[in-house]
Structures are given as C-alpha cells and as structure tokens.
Amino acid sequence: MPAPTALLRRPEEVAEVAANVPLPVEDQDDELLLDAPDAVPSEISAIQTADGDTEMAIDEEGRPRFAPAKNTDGPRRVETRKVPIPPHRLSPLKAAWPKLYPPLVEHLKLQVRMNTKNKAVELRSSKHTTDPGALQKGEDFVKAFSLGFDVEDAIALLRLDDLYIETFEVKDVKTLQGDHLSRAIGRIAGKDGKTKFAIENASRTRVVLADSKIHILGGFKNIGIAREAIVSLILGSPPGKVYGNLRTVASRMKERF
C-alpha cells in the first residue's frame, strides 16, 4: 500500500519546515550564547578600591591578574612541645642545664622551661622565632640528650639537617636472655668501651648503650655501617673479624671523601 502523499516530502521542503519550527527555550539560550558577541573588553580593566589602590587586573582573555603578595609578618601561632625525660636522666639534665638551654634560646629563639614536677622539658615558640622548623629541631635536640647523648653531640642535630637517630633493641636482632644477653651487650661495649669507640670512630657516629637498647646518632649511611657491626657482634661474630670489616669500610670512606 503506498504511503500517503502528505507524509512524503522532498529534502528542500524538510529543511524549510525545520527552519520555520521554533526552537525550545534551552536551545534558544544555547544559540544566543554561541552567537553572542565577545563581551570581554580588549583592553585590560582594573578594579579599584575606594582608596584608589588597584586590587585586580583582567587581561584580554578575561583572566584576573593579581599583584605580587606583600611580605608582611602576620601574627604567628604560638606552639608548645613537651619532651618527657626518663627518671635516670633527670640528674644529668640538671647538671648539664647551663649548657643545654643556650642553643635553644640563642640559636633557635625558643622559650624553654625545665618542669621538674612533670619531669619534662617544655619548649614554646614566640614572635622572635624566625625558623618554622625551630620547634622540631629543639625537640630532637632535647630528645637526643634524654636518650643519653652528650650535649656536644646533640648540638649537631641543630647545625646539620641530615642527621638521624635510630633505636633498636638486642632482642630485635636475636632473642637472648640472662647471661647470653649480658655477654652480647659486653661484646658490643668491649673492654673499657674500646669496641664501642672503634665502631664510632670507623663509622663516624655516636652510639649509646642503654641496657638492652642501642641508640645510634649519625648520617643515614653511617648509621647503616654502625648497625651492621653491632648486629654482627650480637649474632656472635668475634670482635677481631668485626674490626677487620670496620677497617675496610673506614678505608673506603676515606677514599670516597
């Protein structure tokens, strides 16, 4: 059955009818937006305040261009830190306090207080503190002293940025108890501390033996050298073999530098 003639139209008639049909509201808006002339002025316009100062400038593409920020010292937030001190380090803290607080006050511009009641050293920043990392450096310095390092060695944490403290226990390497644990600690220390001093001099680190805990202060690679020597002694290696390995490592470090 042939289709009705009213439904059959030529392409020219279809295009003419489509042009006369009104568009929906949304399509009209899109067409207006697409055909709208460029409303952004070609010249750069600026918004001025009542005082006449220029706040923002708009370029040719309509993007704002802000003036460089001014270096103004705004109000700083006061932060505090509390570093707990072990009971066995309170007496050394009181004795070394005249040498402990000057680097914190004069170099880092911090406010320091020794709170004997709470057994802690309290640090606080102030308006005179210029270094944003001063509070963290001061906490690391006091914490290093609380672990058993000398004040002269702990001051290196304030002057150098690539120093770290690593702490581990003998049982982390090997489970030892009783006399076996005591002999392992004795092998690390050596007679009159000679083995510990040899490790420190060869690896350029500082080692603290606090019962079964071992604290190492130094650079990342240097800590690895000292830790390897101490682990060998804990596992039962004779000191003579460890000395030989330290000599080899020390000679390589001298050649490198």
Rank of each mutant, 00 (worst) to 15 (best):
Y164A: 14
V121M: 03
P86Y: 06
T130L: 15
M114I: 04
E166R: 14
V83S: 03
H128T: 12
K119I: 00
G133E: 14
T129G: 03
T116A: 00
L160E: 15
E152N: 12
S125F: 15
S126V: 01
L108C: 06
E122R: 10
L157V: 03
D162F: 10
Q136M: 07
S125M: 10
E79P: 08
A156E: 15
G148Q: 05
F141K: 08
A96P: 00
T80Q: 15
F149Y: 05
K94I: 14
D140E: 14
P132V: 12
D131N: 12
P132Q: 15
K117A: 07
E139C: 02
L93W: 06
L147I: 03
K171D: 09
E169L: 08
K171P: 01
P132G: 11
V151T: 14
T167C: 00
I165S: 04
K117M: 05
S91T: 10
E106D: 13
V83T: 14
D153Q: 15
A154V: 01
E79K: 13
W97R: 01
L110W: 12
F141G: 06
L93D: 00
F149R: 05
F145C: 06
S126W: 08
F149V: 00
T129S: 11
L108D: 04
E152R: 13
E152T: 11
P98C: 04
A96I: 05
W97Y: 05
A144M: 06
E139K: 11
P102C: 07
A96S: 12
D150V: 01
Q111I: 05
S126I: 05
Q111A: 13
K137L: 06
R113Y: 03
N118V: 04
K82R: 15
H88S: 13
T129A: 09
E122N: 09
A144C: 14
K127A: 11
D131A: 11
H88R: 12
H88A: 13
K127E: 13
P84G: 08
A156Y: 14
H107D: 13
E139Q: 15
G148E: 11
L90N: 06
M114C: 07
P84H: 04
Q136R: 09
E166W: 08
A154P: 09
S125E: 08
K99A: 10
E106C: 02
K119C: 00
Y164F: 15
G148S: 12
K94Q: 08
F168R: 02
V142D: 03
H107G: 02
V83L: 07
L104M: 04
F168M: 07
F141C: 07
V151Y: 03
L90M: 15
K137R: 12
K94G: 05
S91E: 12
A144R: 05
K137P: 01
D153F: 13
A156C: 14
L123E: 00
V105Q: 09
E152S: 13
P87K: 09
L163G: 04
R113E: 06
V105A: 03
S126H: 07
K119E: 04
V151R: 03
